[in-house]
Design a protein around this nucleic acid. Structure first.
Lengths: 224, 224
DNA sequence: TTGCATCTTGACCATTTGGTCAAATTACTC
DNA sequence: GAGTAATTTGACCAAATGGTCAAGATGCAA
């Protein structure tokens, strides 16, 4: 998992964490996600994270040795769940169903974890100072693997010819847009993904566009 | 144009600016765009902006009364050019050509002004503290107008039924993705929009996806 | 209860940074 | 060229902030 963990100064004899440690680390990471996603790395303050986690700044720094360590740990904490949906894309499945399901999952992520989406967007926009190695390593391999899945669908005539990587980018961009730009979406439509009707509208619209875009028909259940 | 101008303390008898003022304000705004887009509002420092503009911090603050004033002026400075492409969408034109041309223009913007794209993305992701009124006012009206154009195309059978606003969001999201996430795009593909081949690949891919997605055929020239 | 390790905190420090101000320099007008 | 307005800067200040540290509070095992 690279050196993105950012362990604090705490060292237990056994490998595990005490109940107090587990609880406080969790509180800190939750607060940090909220703060970093709203203010960015520079705009966030250790003091506010500590306050939101319900402890003193000093105590927070007992668990994480520095602001950067908290930041790295926060990124690492949500990285796995964030990349999970793409991993489910199954070469054996039917292209239309697989893509529809992927799109729905991604929009669900935008609805459930908008802060995580914004945190990553922020990190990448600043030049990915922390996660560049992951983008170039783990993520690159994953994308190449899934691009190959799509390529195979195309070669076996199950789907129209498209650049698989651009297709993945399009799905990422459109689905994450509703999290990262939710204020703008709200300003222009009066709604966001918390509204179940708007959520389904969005899923239908994006799914329809992308699937039609690659010559597929949206499955009955829309990927639900 | 709202109160986003952020005038400094300089006041001339006549309405215009002196040659020195014009030059220095321009230098400052260029430097500010570079700095704010890379570091965000909080991460940017007045000192660095001044250095990049080739003057002392004190002198910069002679032209703009505060960091926030520089920021507002920077946003205002690029807002018009940023919203221009959408305005060209012409109800009288052929849907496929109009959309293809719009997509190409937007990708060209991402190639030419990636900093502007990132600046806006940053601003909106932080909750649009400065430009929310513009989103809710000017932009909302513009989007409603253009959504109506698309709606008319649909009603006259020139294009498949789609939610026009989601279609606009999709175009924004996909095209701006290549500017905002260019580091990620580069990490995964080894290329970016500066590469003419990659640029055309991207235009072709996004245009194909979106136009096919709404039941249109990509025009010969791809919207060039 | 005792003793030790873990946990928590307030006081404190050094640095960064946005902004002020008076003085100096430069540009321009008559 | 004198005089006035515009421009430029270094010195300085106050607030914010990341991080340290010693001391105290708490949990826990024997």
């Amino acid at each position: 998992m690279t050196s993105l963990d950012g362990q604090g100064s705490v060292s237990q004899k056994n490998g595990g964490l005490s109940r107090i440690q587990e609880r406080n680390r969790s509180l800190i990471l939750d607060a940090a996600l909220s703060e970093f996603s709203r203010k960015g790395f520079s705009g966030a303050t250790v003091e506010r994270i500590a306050a939101e986690a319900g402890m003193s700044k000093s105590n927070l720094l007992y668990y994480f040795s520095s602001k950067e360590a908290i930041y790295k740990a926060t990124l690492a904490h949500i990285l796995e769940v964030w990349l999970a949906p793409l991993k489910t894309l199954d070469a054996e499945g039917e292209p239309a169903r697989e893509l529809a399901a992927y799109i729905r999952q991604k929009i669900q992520m935008s609805a459930d974890y908008p802060e995580a989406s914004r945190l990553f967007a922020n990190e990448v926009m600043q030049g990915a100072p922390q996660i560049l190695p992951i983008l170039e390593g783990e993520l690159k391999r994953l994308v190449e693997e899934k691009a190959q899945v799509i390529e195979t669908w195309i070669e076996t005539g199950r789907m129209q010819r498209t650049d698989p990587v651009h297709l993945i980018f399009t799905i990422w961009a459109t689905t994450q847009h509703y999290a990262d730009f939710s204020i703008q979406v709200k300003a222009l439509t009066g709604r966001d993904l918390n509204d179940p009707v708007f959520f389904e509208d969005t899923v239908a619209s994006v799914t329809g566009l992308v699937l039609n875009g690659v010559g597929l028909t949206v499955p009955q259940d829309g990927g639900a």
